[in-house]
Nucleic acid binder design. Sequence first.
DNA 1: AACTCTTTTTTGTATGACAAACATATCATA
DNA 2: TATGATATGTTTGTCATACAAAAAAGAGTT
Lengths: 236, 236
Amino acid sequence: MLKPDTDSTGPVAGRDHSMRVERKSLTLRERAADVIRQAIIDHRLPPGKHLKERELCEMLGVSRTSVREALRHLESEHLIETVAHRGPVVVSLSIEDAKELYQVRSSLEGLAGELFARHATDEHIRNLRKTAEEMADAVARDHSEATLIEIIERFYEVLLDGSQSKVCAQFIRSLNTRISMFRRVGLNDAERRSGMMNDIDEIVRAAEERNAGALKQACIRHVERAGAIVMQQLNG
Amino acid sequence: MLKPDTDSTGPVAGRDHSMRVERKSLTLRERAADVIRQAIIDHRLPPGKHLKERELCEMLGVSRTSVREALRHLESEHLIETVAHRGPVVVSLSIEDAKELYQVRSSLEGLAGELFARHATDEHIRNLRKTAEEMADAVARDHSEATLIEIIERFYEVLLDGSQSKVCAQFIRSLNTRISMFRRVGLNDAERRSGMMNDIDEIVRAAEERNAGALKQACIRHVERAGAIVMQQLNG
DNA sequence: AACTCTTTTTTGTATGACAAACATATCATA
DNA sequence: TATGATATGTTTGTCATACAAAAAAGAGTT
């Protein structure tokens, strides 16, 4: 049931340094979309599940109007597929899809890296290192996968923020939403964690040198490796 | 006013060799979205224009329900921006946006090229050449910009089709929709047309050699040049 | 011109309605 | 039994209507 508007969905603390007042009283339909999206991402609404409007209405406590508008949104995010007169179905991703998603992500993150090297402020670079260190720390202390993922997400936000390309960031975020449908697998054994820290280290170093070519390659390789791990899990 | 359902939006002839029955009776909201999208692309609804729901309803002859669902779709395509309680506004693209869009497109089309070289069938390659020849022909006979654009679009469709990556194709199409908001400029003088034909030629040749690296670079360069032209127009 | 108050417009959301498409259960027949 | 036809119930697609809250536009005052 959606609560009035607790503004719990506010901007992530301390990332936006501008003075703009966040006009963020999300509409009901947006919050509905958020809730459904999250449910899809963590498989509470599993792939292939046929979503019925009435059920969603009850589940969310909002009217069909809002639910349907939310569904249109998720539809263009490719999280659901709608067949006329049959209603929306949670997408199921094939191995082939996973491969394609990672290929595209790799390409785009290469671009993001390149742009970061060229456009990021010194503060962005410091932030990148700081977040990388938090990550190393979390790995060293053997924190949970969830914690790690949260830090990784912050790392990417710094990267995207510093690359100063709204368009690039939009696309990568959209990709990541889709990818997170099967990213649940991957970061539990020590070897992989240290492999990842290697990648991250490479990225931070290239960033500090502002070496666009190197950073681009580091980002590409990082995604390729992450993709390879996921593909392996999906196959095995 | 939207007419019943003429199915004029059928599948492009002879590209799908599978036996699936195309289940394609578009819903009203989808057709509404199509009409609005096209109006935005060719500036009949100019950038910055504040869209009022009632006006759209009358203009399209459909109910608010359908219009609003269509708007949600255009919203996630980044063709309009909605501020709560103010309604949707047609996006206006800054020069910076244009630059970013072309950068991303360049990166993605590089990927598409690479994948084409690796995955396309021989028929795809033949089609690519055939379309390129039509293009050369249209240039030689000095056809209209509209004709040329139509052929170029077909060329891209072949490229995307052959690259066999649904995801990549989705993203590039989405980009192109946005870009076409200012692509109206660009292909009228002879020098540019011959420049473009050079690019195309390079692409076709690399494709025929199935040289992934070369094709990737050719695609990247092509988009970069196209972008440079647009940027020039926007600046001057 | 700048400010406040009022009126009008527009959006966000809910509800009820109904035809058409779909799914399911029921029954008839080869 | 398997097949096909029919009736029944669901769900979607679309519309109309309603109303509170937000925003815009006007009106009047200082």
